[in-house]
């Protein structure tokens, strides 16, 4: 297990370095920062000055190393638009997005686990068909359009929930439903496929033959094994949720990292955009690492296979 964990960790570090360099270069290469900093109608001397003051005239590799070293120390620079410390700004918005992602994952699991299990127990029944229909609709409906429909129905027509903003718990309900709905079908399909496979296996037949109750067989013997791929998928989906929150947070004006990212992008606030892109990439790397380790722990075959 230790060798496997160390190998996985080494790979994660390597990915993290490359990803942060890419995030730095990609955003740096796609536009001239100095011109953006100088604003509209700036003279060329001004732009040159800014280039010198911010050190933008040095080789890119030097700029990257300096930026990465600062990032590692928690110095994310100063926001060009909000005129505040980026580190503080990101930390301030992070809890909202983390909560939204967590709520959405819980919502998705709460919907997809029971539905997936039932669909596996009764294939081709109406509940199986319902799952399929939910997945097909979810795949086809644009998330922002679904968000607007929910907004009209629950906030404007029924007046049950607030339209937008982030002042109370009620503001989280609609964004959670929208984001959760988009990751639920993938989890549901995986639970269904995993359960069908596991239910047909020898040890489940043995457990049944021993006379264990069917609830015990389904929940204790089958589910545990069907859950292995779900854990990995959930971690990856959490990364997707953090990215997908850009659209949903912007639609609902939920004041989290996604909305901040959108604002920073539209205002060409490079330090903020870079910090968020890097942060989300590193989070994804960390989550997949955690998922792989959790999987290896749940299923010893994985760590033996890759560790040898």
């Amino acid at each position: 297990m230790l060798i496997y964990a160390l190998k996985r960790l080494g790979l994660a570090v390597l990915v993290a370095v490359v990803v942060s360099a890419l995030a730095f270069l990609l955003l740096r290469a796609s536009g001239d920062v100095a011109i953006a900093l100088a604003g509209e109608g700036a003279r060329s001397e001004d732009i040159e000055n800014i280039r010198r003051i911010f050190g933008l005239d040095r080789p890119l590799i030097v700029q990257y190393l300096e930026w990465a070293a600062k990032m590692a120390r928690g110095d994310f620079g100063t926001s060009l638009f909000f005129k505040t410390d980026v580190h503080a700004l990101v930390l301030e918005k992070l809890p909202t997005t983390a909560l939204l992602a967590l709520f959405s994952l819980i919502f998705a699991l709460a919907v997809s686990l029971p539905l997936g299990i039932l669909a596996a127990l009764y294939p081709n029944s109406w509940i199986d068909r319902l799952c399929l229909a939910l997945a097909v609709i979810g795949q086809a409906l644009p998330s922002f359009f679904f968000a607007l429909i929910l907004m009209i129905v629950f906030a404007v027509m029924l007046r049950l929930l607030p339209v937008s903003g982030s002042d109370s718990w009620a503001h989280f309900v609609l964004p959670t439903v929208v984001l959760g709905y988009y990751i639920a079908p993938a989890i549901m399909r995986l639970v269904r496929a995993g359960m069908i496979e596991v239910l047909a296996s020898d040890y489940v037949r043995t457990a049944r033959a021993k006379g264990l109750s069917s609830t015990s067989v389904v929940l204790k013997h089958a589910l545990r094994n069907a859950l292995v791929p779900v854990v990995a998928l959930s971690a990856v989906q959490l990364g997707f949720l953090l990215g997908g929150s850009v659209v949903i947070e912007t639609v609902f004006a939920l004041d989290g990292l996604g909305y901040l990212a959108f604002q920073s992008i539209t205002h060409k606030d490079l330090p903020v955009t870079q910090a968020i892109v890097t942060l989300l990439s590193l989070l994804y790397v960390g989550l997949t690492l955690a998922a792989d380790l959790a999987n290896a722990w749940l299923d010893p075959r994985i760590r033996v296979g890759s560790g040898s």
């Binding site: 990915v15 993290a16 990803v19 890419l22 995030a23 990609l26 955003l27 796609s30 536009g31 953006a36 990364g239 953090l242 990215g243 997908g244 850009v246 659209v247 990212a261 959108f262 992008i265 539209t266 060409k268 955009t273 968020i276 892109v277 989300l280 990439s281 590193l282 994804y284 790397v285 997949t288």
Partner: peptide, 16 residues
Amino acid sequence: LALPLILVALAVVATV
């Protein structure tokens, strides 16, 4: 896969 697709796409489109 580690790069957040929507964010990177938004940022590049915004600058280009």
